[in-house]
Simulated assay, not measured.
Amino acid sequence: MTAAAMIAAEGLRVRYGGRTVLEDVALRLERGEFAYLIGRSGSGKSTLLSLLYRELGEFEGSLEVAGRPLRDYPRHELRRRIGVVFQSYELLEDKTVFENIAMAGEVRGMAAGPLRQEISTLLKRVGLDGRERDYPAQLSGGEQQRVAIVRALIGKPELLLADEPTGNLDAQTASGVLGLLRELQRETGMAMLVVTHSRELLDAFPATAWEIDEGKVRKHEYRELLR
């Protein structure tokens, strides 16, 4: 039997702020697959991600995560399966690097010992070994985003959603961050959906791209978009 897709949407329709944002969307992200979500500002990319991690609740049609209807998930259970990285990092300024990450592990029900070990291992992996006691203000933008990535990966989620994770970074740092995400995705085998506006990054790290345009979604292999 074929395993259920990590994300499967069919006939998805979302109205928000008095207008239709998504209309008859069909999208499928397989387990372990890396893909992009692209489109103009306001096209509905962030709306789709907000549905998936339950910040936005109202929709019509079918939307499943790991073969289970999204509506059937208790919010806490869904968030144990999904990690999220935001453009603005969303780190708490009055908490250390360790504390910011540990809060996510606690939400996911991790015991203190394994949590501390996993934080240490992941910080080494992203080049931030020894920065556990620093505060966000002591870090560069790229370093803050790496902390946000570690926070999203704590507890080994099956799916990572990244909403413009390089949007606040310079071109060189952005390339490093997306390259790191791609490496971590391959190593862990998780599925990953990345929202981006950057054609440079899509060219450097080509993959399937789902393009939202006027509420509809079209699937591309990214090289097609460069012709």
Rank of each mutant, 00 (worst) to 15 (best):
L161A: 06
L27W: 06
R223A: 14
T2L: 10
T173R: 00
D203T: 14
A171I: 09
A171E: 15
K45Q: 06
R54P: 00
G11H: 08
R31T: 11
G130S: 11
V107A: 13
R40K: 13
R15Y: 01
L193M: 12
R227W: 03
T188I: 08
A102N: 05
H197S: 06
M6A: 15
G141P: 03
H197Q: 07
L225T: 09
Q185T: 13
A112K: 09
D163Y: 04
R31Q: 14
G11P: 00
R81Q: 12
A9Q: 00
R223N: 05
L159A: 09
A112T: 10
I7C: 02
L115T: 03
G11W: 03
E224W: 04
L160I: 15
Q144S: 03
G105Q: 03
L178Q: 10
Q117K: 14
L193A: 03
S175W: 05
L226E: 11
V195Y: 02
E211D: 05
A137Q: 13
Q172S: 12
S175K: 13
E143P: 01
L52E: 03
G32S: 08
A209M: 06
E55D: 06
R151L: 04
F98E: 15
A191G: 15
P74A: 15
L52N: 02
E93V: 05
R227D: 06
R54W: 01
S198F: 06
S88Y: 07
A209W: 07
H76L: 05
A137C: 08
L201V: 11
V194L: 13
R40C: 00
H197E: 09
L49P: 00
A207M: 08
T121F: 08
S62C: 05
P74G: 10
D134M: 09
K156A: 13
Q145R: 05
Q185W: 05
Y16W: 07
E23V: 06
P136D: 07
D134Y: 11
D213T: 14
D213G: 01
G44M: 07
V14C: 10
R227E: 14
R75K: 12
T208N: 01
L70K: 06
I154Y: 00
L128N: 05
G127T: 12
P74L: 13
D170Y: 03
P136H: 08
A4L: 10
V147C: 09
Q144I: 01
Q145H: 10
I82C: 09
D203H: 14
S120L: 11
E106H: 01
R40N: 08
I101Q: 04
A148W: 01
E55L: 14
D203E: 15
G127H: 10
R223Y: 12
V25S: 02
S175T: 14
A112N: 02
A35Q: 04
